[in-house]
């Protein structure tokens, strides 16, 4: 059974949703506090949504200096699957583990709504089980979700298939409708939408399952 670590920063608030989703997919979840310097023996790490360190300064700016982030960076460097959801995505960009940055939404509104995502690349631990072109309904819940990067970074993202998910109808002003990106190797992924909140049709959508299923089983493929 895959073991997935869920990092808990002071101010994280989606860690239980993430753990529940992981467990529902047959993996085990364990919380890793931000002050920990080791991840233990995990097959993947999730940085969940919330407001790590109060989002003071900028979302993710202080979380990046949490002791656990050195362990996350080392895990990522050896090919371990790392997933940042919403605030976790912001933390990964601030930490330099993913390119670009997340800016305040166009229109300066907090957005909390279902969005339709289009799978743009399956070259990532998150989208590996999905089909290119597939449309997935997954909710967003953020204020700073407009993906931004310079032209050189953008060209590189396109060249290496690192844009993994796009919005069908861009809700927040993200460059090129980008909802999620991966690093070049595909083992580190961040997205603003919340797949862990799209696990059941009873609650609106089960389209997050194909993403998280791919993620929790990714380590077996890497090895």
């Amino acid at each position: 059974m895959a073991r997935i670590g869920v990092v808990v920063f002071p101010g994280s608030n989606c860690e239980y949703d993430a753990a529940r989703a992981v467990e529902e997919l047959g993996a085990s979840a364990e919380f890793i506090f931000h002050s920990s310097t080791s991840l233990g023996d995990v097959d993947g790490v999730i940085l969940p949504g919330g407001f790590a360190h109060g989002d003071y300064l900028r979302p993710g700016a202080l979380a990046r200096f949490s002791p656990v982030m050195d362990a996350v960076a080392a895990f990522a460097a050896e090919g371990g699957p790392v997933l940042g959801i919403c605030n976790g995505f912001q933390v990964l960009t601030e930490a330099g583990l993913l390119p670009g940055a997340l800016q305040k939404n166009r229109g300066l509104t907090f957005l909390c709504q279902p969005t339709t995502l289009v799978v743009s690349s399956t070259h990532s631990v998150l989208t590996r089980a999905a089909q290119v072109g597939a449309r997935l309904v997954v909710p967003i819940n953020h204020f700073s979700g407009a993906y931004t990067c310079d032209d050189t970074t953008y060209a590189s993202l396109v060249d290496h298939g690192q844009i993994v998910l796009r919005y069908q109808d861009n809700p927040n002003g993200s460059r090129d409708d980008i909802a999620g990106v991966a690093n070049e190797a595909g083992n580190v992924v961040g997205l603003m939408p919340h797949p862990e909140r799209a696990m059941s049709t009873l609650l609106g959508s089960a389209d997050g399952r194909v993403l998280l299923e791919g993620f929790v089983s990714a380590r077996e493929i890497v090895h």
Binding site: L57, A61, F65, T93, A101, Q103, C149, D150
Partner: peptide, 8 residues
């Protein structure tokens, strides 16, 4: 190092 994000 801390106050700004050099990307933006």
């Amino acid at each position: 190092r801390l106050l700004s994000n050099p990307v933006i």
